[in-house]
């Protein structure tokens, strides 16, 4: 093998190994892995199943909130949430119909919400402002109007 080729392949392998180590360290040591909750629900009976029989926001600690939310064509329930700056918010999500996406623009909150599955994701809101929440998985003719807001005061 050519010397330059050896150098190139060594650098390539080294770079790729570094990527593997960094993503692995973040996932397993820093618990930054992607949202992968594993709880099931009957998608036909979301309204009768706890906790989704009472969607809404609940304070569960100092600066800590739980939001139980259903996604359905083409809305979120509850809509227009408000939390104080510095709050940590735990979202518990499911879909009542097709696959939806749960994205809060300007944050790293981004998760797939699938019928039959309960998805969970947590975010700390430090910066005050009005955040756009939108569905980022095609869900039908009104997909582009499926949005709401989170106001951080």
């Amino acid at each position: 093998m050519h010397l330059d080729e050896k150098i190139w392949l060594t650098l390539s392998f080294g770079m790729i190994m570094a990527f593997m180590v960094i993503t692995g360290y973040q996932t397993f040591a820093l618990e930054m892995g992607p949202p992968s909750n594993n709880e099931l629900i009957d998608p036909q009976k979301v309204d009768e199943t706890a906790p989704f029989n009472e969607p809404g926001i609940k304070q569960i600690g100092e600066n800590e909130y739980e939001v139980v939310m259903t996604l359905q064509v083409f809305s979120f329930n509850p809509m227009d949430i408000e939390v104080p700056a510095g709050s940590t918010v735990h979202f518990t999500l499911t879909s009542k119909d097709v696959v939806h996406g749960f994205e809060i623009a300007g944050t790293n909150v981004n998760a797939m919400v699938m019928p039959g599955h309960i998805q969970k994701i947590t975010q700390k809101f430090d910066e005050p402002g009005k955040y756009l929440v939108l569905c980022n998985e095609y869900c039908g003719a009104g997909h582009q109007v499926m949005s709401t807001t989170i106001t951080v005061k």
């Binding site: 993503t23 992607p34 949202p35 992968s36 797939m112 699938m114 599955h117 998805q119």
Partner: peptide, 13 residues
């Protein structure tokens, strides 16, 4: 499918 529920983060990794 990294952001989907129902698949363990270790298998995704």
């Amino acid at each position: 499918q990294l952001l989907e529920p129902g698949i363990d983060a270790a298998w995704k990794f």
